[in-house]
Amino acid sequence: MGEKRVGEQTIAFKNPPSIISTAAIAGPKEGEGPLRDYYDVILQDDLFGEESWEKAESKMQKEAVRLALEKLKIDEKDIDYIFAGDLLNQLMASSLAARDYKIPFFGLYGACSTLTESMSLASMAVDGGYADYVIASTSSHFCSAERQFRFPLEHGNQRPPTSQWTVTGAGAAVISSKGNGPYITYVTTGRVVDFGIKDANNMGAAMAPAAADTILRHFKDTGRTNKDYDLIITGDLGKVGMELTLDILKKQGFDMSTNYSDCGVKVFDLTQQDVHSGGSGCGCSAIVFCGYLYKQIMEGNLNKILLISTGALLSPTSTMQGESIPGIAHAVAIERGV
């Protein structure tokens, strides 16, 4: 067994890597949401001066990386790796963005769980001694996701109340061996969990069992409980998935009603913004963490959080072939001091 492993699925870092910089770029609708003051850039227009939604998404990711580096006064060539991902086929947004910076690149697909997936791998690379500076970046775009997974934008269909709104946004975090926190102390890598939900309009429900599984596994592996954290926050379960997760955890003896939230619920005003169950997409936990949560930790309003980005690993093909939706969730513990 690896010397840094605790329990079955968790790593406890010997020298916890620091998140030394973040940047978040949000779309126009997200820019009207409750967290509007925390984003570095808010787009005026969904196309971001590009010819297509996909290229706009790619540009957002590139801008997020550039901004995160700009805050550090370190150069692109000091970065050892970038771990990046998005929702598009063959990771179009990340790959096109990576074409322009000369950094060794790992492309990741974890659906909407990609933020914590990339942060986990980046931290492992740093604590393993393979890198000093690593970027984790992810993006999603409502329009590009909608046309790939659902209907063309101008199609006049109705969205059921359990459906979620893909966040237009990108986030990048620089993770380093040099720095004074906030530290990534534990990483709990999730297993693929599928409880047989087939409704692609209810992804919160499809992902909730995976989120609960990873949270419970994290508690068991580390000996911590919900009381050890100021905030436990899932990636994009939305209101529906969040309530299901709370229910499952309560049945297992963890009452998290006071310190549990979901990025998909935080990112929009659910009563005003017509997003039904809440936000979703890689960009959801990316802008909420890289924008809002990171600043809350830096300012000392939060000391210890557990961030669990959640992904629904469906594809248009798997849905058409009648498969149920596999869920995944990766947890990252982030602490102000060690």
Binding site: P152, E154, G156, Q158
Partner: peptide, 28 residues
């Protein structure tokens, strides 16, 4: 698409909805 969001089948079932289902992907 805004009519459709409000009316659902009311704007999908008429032949205008058939037309919408051709034009929307053509534009997209």
């Amino acid at each position: 698409d805004n009519i459709g969001k409000f009316a659902g089948a009311g704007s999908i079932v008429p032949i205008t909805g058939f037309s919408n289902s051709i034009v929307a992907p053509a534009m997209e």
